[in-house]
Design a protein around this nucleic acid. Structure first.
Length: 480
RNA sequence: GGUCCCAUCGACUAGGGGUUAGGUCGCCACUCUUUCACAGUGAAAACACGGGUUCGAAUCCCGUUGGGACCGCCA
């Protein structure tokens, strides 16, 4: 391949980053890196009504946090800018003129109401709703007259009828569509802005995009785009339409059935590595019998190819994400884990400045965490100033004679220590065992309940060390 | 409704003419651990259906069924 690979991620700045967008952005990024090409960010802000303040910054930072970066774009710049479509209006207009002049486009003057009525009728007849191409019948005089007035006008693509558009999709294979069912798509809106269809063709060409990688929902508008490329005398980039990410009921992933914003997942304490790993495996896999499931961004970059992209949609399975996230949490560098966990300790009563202690706590509980926002519920016992016994039935373990004896003995042993560690706690416990003859459940269960108020939880020696000598004695004293 | 896309365990998937159809999540059982969890072992669990082609089809072809996407002066 002599030509440099250039791909683009082209979102519209309407707010948060959708999981589906993340996947598209990821695949573009991986593809570009795999081929040593360029990854370009282009903002498709041609719909003035949907603009959201701060969306672009948010998008770049969210993607950046996950390790998805761009070689050209609004913040990085580049030789093919501007990268906001709203700043390229004159370019689109120029090509629209060209299309008009060559007879590949025409003016149309219908109002919104007229179009609505047209569609209503079509629906009534059970026909496909599409522009009925009535503007094509206007004479030159009629057009000129309208143009001279202040009537709103629009420029539409003149789709050649009775033809067949074929293209070879890199993941879907050969696709053909009859032009008779292709709409005379609006190219330039009455507000002077282009539609997506015109803008993306013009930009992809001008920005030398070699591969278009985007969601499957675009596949039905490909013929329009190809017709535009042809009308302008341009080569059509290679295309790869990746399957959708689905709700559990197999419909397109939507807010209705759970979180769809990348930010939501980050906020809940899904690690970026886990998120990227999981999303990459939704619709792609290394194939060839490879059974590995954990991939770093570097490994993904190395392995990723379009021919291993799945042809059918993939359900977003939160259970597996949780499992994977937990796996990352369990194996994460403890220092780094402590750093990124800090926000989740807020309000728990744990001193966040005492990083050593935070690390010890994390080591004790990480095995339980599917995501970082579960920290508070597991950390309660370490911050407690007194133990609350949650269930009545646990009380009898604390009030029996053997328990009292064990508590007294254990207190005494710990009292003699300078400070409590997991190791000398274990020693103390075994001394209690041999001196009092109390052992097994009869010993461990009451102690656990006395220290934590619960029958289960992390390992006792670790808990004892984190609680510290004073608290352990205090908690024990209460029962003897 | 029209057009297009898709079809292996509940989910993610490997396999792509001859396999006991493999792995992972989840579910269940057992083991380990004096708790829960983790870990380990094991089990249940799939080629949508019907026709072809072929000595042989999950695999190739056609059809049916089912699912999805799109049908906007949104992207």
């Amino acid at each position: 391949m002599s030509q440099e690979v250039r791909v683009r991620f082209a979102p519209s700045p309407t707010g948060f980053v959708h999981i589906g967008s993340l996947r598209t952005a990821l695949f573009n990024y991986l593809f570009a890196r795999h081929h040593g090409g360029k990854n370009i960010l282009r903002i498709e802000d041609t719909d003035q009504t949907r603009k959201v303040e701060g969306a672009v910054e948010n998008l770049i930072s969210s993607l950046g946090r996950l390790g998805i970066t761009f070689d050209e774009g609004p913040e990085t710049g580049g030789n093919h800018g501007p990268y906001y479509q709203s700043e390229r209006l004159n370019i689109y207009r120029e090509y629209c003129e060209q299309l008009l002049a060559s007879g590949h486009a025409y003016y149309a003057f219908e109002t919104q109401d007229e179009l609505d009525e047209m569609r209503r009728l079509q629906q009534l007849e059970g026909k496909q709703t599409m522009y009925d191409r009535r503007g094509r019948d206007l004479s030159d005089d009629e057009v000129n007259e309208k143009l001279a007035s202040d009537a709103p006008r629009v420029i539409r693509l003149k789709v050649p009828l009775g033809e067949e558009v074929r293209f070879n999709d890199l993941v879907k294979g050969n696709i053909k569509i009859d032009t008779d069912i292709v709409d005379d798509q609006i190219l330039l809106k009455s507000d002077g802005f282009p539609t997506y269809h015109l803008a993306n063709v013009v930009d992809d060409h001008l920005m030398n995009i070699t591969h278009i990688i985007r969601g499957e929902e675009w596949i039905t508008s490909v013929p329009k785009h190809i017709l535009i490329y042809k009308a302008l005398g341009w080569d059509v980039p290679l295309m790869a339409h990746v399957p959708l990410i689905l709700n559990p009921d197999k419909s397109k992933l939507s807010k209705r059935q759970g979180d769809v914003a990348v930010e939501d997942y980050l906020q809940k304490g899904y690690l970026k590595e886990a998120l990227v790993n999981f999303i990459a495996l939704l619709g792609w896999n290394p194939g060839e019998g490879e059974e590995k499931e954990f991939f770093s961004m570097e490994e993904l970059t190395k392995e990723f190819t379009l021919d291993k992209v799945q042809t059918s949609g993939a359900v977003f399975n939160i259970d597996k994400l949780n499992w994977m996230n937990n796996a990352y949490i369990k194996n994460y560098d403890i220092d780094k884990l402590a750093d990124i966990s800090m926000p989740f300790f807020k309000g728990t009563g744990i001193d966040m400045n005492d990083k050593d202690r935070v690390k010890k706590i994390l080591s004790a509980i990480r095995v339980y965490l599917n995501k970082l926002n579960e920290i508070p519920e597991h950390v309660e016992l370490f911050a407690a100033t007194e133990v609350t016994i949650k269930e009545e039935t646990l009380l009898e373990h604390l009030t029996s004679e053997t328990s009292k004896k064990a508590f007294a003995s254990l207190s005494e042993k710990i009292e003699a220590l300078d400070f409590l560690t997991a190791d000398n706690y274990k020693l103390a416990i075994s001394e209690v065992q041999s001196e009092t003859g109390i052992k097994g459940k009869a010993l461990f269960k009451p102690v656990r309940i006395a220290l934590t108020g619960s029958e289960n939880g992390p390992e006792l020696p670790a808990i004892a060390e984190i609680l510290g000598k004073d608290k352990v004695i205090e908690f024990l004293k209460r029962w003897h």
